[in-house]
């Protein structure tokens, strides 16, 4: 009997189980908050968080905040892509520089650069440029590394094919090197964009300027917990959705290579 039950349970698809787990947690929280097991003021029930969500959508400027955050992140990533791809290219063609600086770049890519934000705050002031700079700073090293990795990794035989067809250096780059390293460059930009979003939201939250980060910081300062929880879950959901979409997009774009 127990065995049959176990096997029925096991045949449930993972997606459904995931959904059930989330639904269960939300339900549990609702009951716990409603019955006073947990403090309903500091940890408001999901139902009041939902009301808070409706409120920040209607009057809290959630849409605008999201637009600001995304615009800032995209701008940072664009700056990071330009500098990153350019430096990746230089490090690829200038072998000695590549040998000298690539390990530095890798160290920068994994260093907690966002902690430098007080410096940028005094340079740019308490405004959007600090945030753009922090976003760009975070995403340039990974983009540069991935660009260099991609260019270095172009198979010599593909370059030889180009040589046997008498390609000009320009054709050699645009018809072979660039498309061959595109998958890696794209991965770099995707990772860079994620780093940019994390940095942008973080600095917005810290300096109280800009989009979603500022929204959450303000709601927290006002002790408006239902709306604050709603804002936090919204940020998490949006970044998950963004990650998911770019991941699928990358898979789709690279499905033939």
């Amino acid at each position: 009997m127990a065995r049959t039950m176990a096997s029925t349970r096991l045949t449930l698809p993972p997606l459904l189980i995931r959904f059930l787990v989330i639904a269960g947690l939300v339900g549990l929280w609702e009951i716990a908050s409603g019955s006073g097991w947990i403090n309903a003021f500091t940890a408001p029930a999901p139902s009041s968080v939902w009301k808070g969500f409706e409120k920040i959508v209607a009057e809290g400027g959630l849409g605008e905040a999201m637009a600001i955050t995304f615009a800032t992140a995209l701008m940072s990533a664009a700056i990071g892509a330009v500098f990153g791809i350019a430096s990746g290219y230089i490090l690829h063609i200038w072998k000695a520089a590549g040998e000298a600086y690539t390990s530095w770049l890798a160290a920068l890519a994994s260093a907690p650069l966002v902690l430098l934000y007080p410096l940028f705050l005094v340079i740019f002031g308490r405004n959007m440029w600090t945030i753009v700079a922090m976003g760009a700073l975070g995403c340039t090293p990974p983009i540069a590394l991935k660009a260099k990795e991609g260019l270095d990794g172009v198979k010599p035989v593909l370059l030889n094919v180009g040589r046997t067809f008498n390609l000009t250096p320009k054709q050699q780059f645009w018809m072979i090197m660039f498309p061959a390293s595109l998958p890696s460059i794209f991965t770099g930009i995707r990772i860079g964009l994620l780093f940019a979003i994390i940095n942008v939201v973080g600095v917005e939250f810290l300096v109280n300027v800009g989009g979603l980060g500022q929204l959450i910081a303000n709601l927290g300062d006002r002790f408006d917990y239902p709306q604050m929880y709603a804002g936090i879950f919204f940020v998490i959901l949006v970044s998950v959705a963004f990650f998911w979409i770019t991941e699928k997009l990358e898979k789709w774009l690279l499905s033939n290579t």
């Binding site: 500091t42 994390i198 939250f205 980060g213 927290g220 936090i232 940020v235 998490i236 970044s239």
Partner: peptide, 17 residues
């Protein structure tokens, strides 16, 4: 999917807790 989200936004909750 939760890994690359900005964890800092949880800080207000953690400050309360």
């Amino acid at each position: 999917y939760l890994a690359p989200t900005p964890k800092i936004v949880f800080l207000p909750i953690l400050l309360v807790l």
